[in-house]
């Protein structure tokens, strides 16, 4: 195992960095897209159910299928990394729209009324009152999306771009466990690490959630 890692350090590091890129770019894009959509779903109540139904359907599409349908829709090459990024962005948006909408809906009406009475206008009230209150729910969703994305990236190896997934296909071809184990361990560690980072960010951003005795 150690020998394998030492001998293939460069391959593993390249796979890892591609993995990180393929997993995290969609998270950022997805969060940026989901935020306004989730806001609209709450602002215009009639949009809520249709939007959630569509997200639910999108989320149920298997990853390998989505990776391969996307080039047919947006016209990229079938082996392009953009397909993976777009597909994972779709999943992230589908998951986060619901979370953003539910988070914003959980904000107590009395709080928003109080903010309005204090002179907060719509936009400022959204960013300074509603968003912070909804943040714990949203970040919980972001954790799920991040962990799911990190594990999904490796499926991309079947179409040639899969970060650590390349180690799995190589291990399969060579009937050799070492690269597979290294890939699984790194993928899981990456997921745990990103999860931890989001938890720490949440603690910093929402210190009031700890006051009640909840960690």
């Amino acid at each position: 195992m150690i020998d394998y890692v030492i001998a293939n350090e460069n391959v593993i590091l390249a796979a890892l960095s591609q993995h990180i890129m393929l997993a995290l770019v969609p998270i950022v894009l997805g969060a940026l897209i989901a935020l306004p959509i989730g806001f609209l779903a709450v602002r215009y109540g009639w949009l809520y159910h249709p939007l959630l139904n569509v997200s639910g359907l999108l989320y149920s599409i298997p990853s390998l299928a989505l990776f391969l349908i996307i080039p047919g829709i947006i016209g990229t090459k079938i082996l392009s990394p953009i397909n993976i990024i777009v597909a994972l962005t779709v999943y992230t948006v589908a998951l986060l729209v619901r979370v953003v909408a539910d988070g914003l809906r959980s904000v107590d009406g009395i709080v928003t009324q109080a903010a309005s009475a204090m002179g907060y206008r719509r936009i400022r009230r959204f960013f300074e009152v509603e968003l912070p209150i909804a943040l714990p729910v949203m970040l919980a969703g972001l954790r799920v999306a991040t962990v799911a994305n990190i594990s999904l990236v490796s499926v991309g190896a079947l179409i040639g771009v899969g970060g650590l997934g390349a180690l799995f296909t190589r291990g399969l071809q060579l009937r050799y466990l070492d690269p597979i184990i290294v890939g699984i361990v790194l993928s899981v560690l990456l997921a745990v690490l990103c999860d931890l980072v989001i938890v720490l960010v949440q603690r910093r951003l929402t210190p009031w959630t700890r006051v009640k005795g909840r960690s």
Binding site: V147, G162, F168
Partner: peptide, 19 residues
């Protein structure tokens, strides 16, 4: 739930097939 979600499916399949 967390473990299941973070486990890469292709990795698990490859692992079991080689094993």
């Amino acid at each position: 739930g967390n473990v299941g979600r973070s486990l890469p499916t292709l990795g698990l399949i490859s692992f079991l097939v080689v094993l």
